[in-house]
């Protein structure tokens, strides 16, 4: 899975050399920034249900048509699945914060998402609304420190861009 460490090792391995001092510097740089990412991951994990619920509420508020018969949120089962999907994205963001790269989102969230949403006839705009709401709702230092919020919002934006 792609991270600073695995990238450095792959490059060194391709050249058949031991980790050089510049390789070690890159890893050191990534470890220095890791504290903010860990903080964001921890705070997100602690509140993941509440955050997902807020995002879910925002998308059904903006797109009430989803509740109508034949739409993506016509019954409770489908509504629950929508909430579950939002939580899935948040869980992958939590993983990305830990890894320090977009590997988990790329491999488990974004690859194939377009095909799945088309096959199931799901609209992506409500997901974008949910993610945008969660991004704008985050507030430093109430929720987490400013640097942690930057890392967290960056990943939400990454998901938004992949869906729009």
């Amino acid at each position: 899975m792609k991270s600073v460490v695995t990238t450095v090792i792959s490059a060194a391995d391709a050249a058949g050399r031991f980790p050089s001092s510049s390789d070690l510097e890159s890893v050191q740089g990534s470890l220095q920034r890791a504290a903010a990412r860990m903080e964001a991951a921890e705070k997100l994990a602690a509140n993941i249900d509440a955050v997902a619920q807020e995002g879910y509420n925002a998308c059904f508020k903006k797109y009430p048509y989803l509740n109508e018969t034949g739409e993506a949120g016509e019954n409770q089962v489908k509504k629950d699945k929508c909430l579950r999907d939002i939580k899935h994205y948040l869980r992958l963001i939590n993983y990305c914060l830990v890894v320090g790269g977009t590997g988990p989102l790329d491999e488990w969230g974004i690859a194939g998402a377009r095909e799945v949403y088309r096959a199931l006839n799901l609209p992506t705009a409500p997901y974008v609304t949910a993610m945008t709401f969660m991004r704008d709702r985050g507030c430093a230092p109430r929720d987490m420190s400013a640097q942690a919020l930057v890392e967290y919002n960056g990943l939400l934006d990454y998901v938004i861009n992949s869906l729009s």
Binding site: M1, S3, V5, T6, S10, V98, V99, G100, G103
Partner: peptide
């Protein structure tokens, strides 16, 4: 290839 961080992700 995994590192300590991605190992935690795979486990979770």
């Amino acid at each position: 290839m995994l590192d300590a961080f991605s190992r935690a992700v795979v486990a979770a």
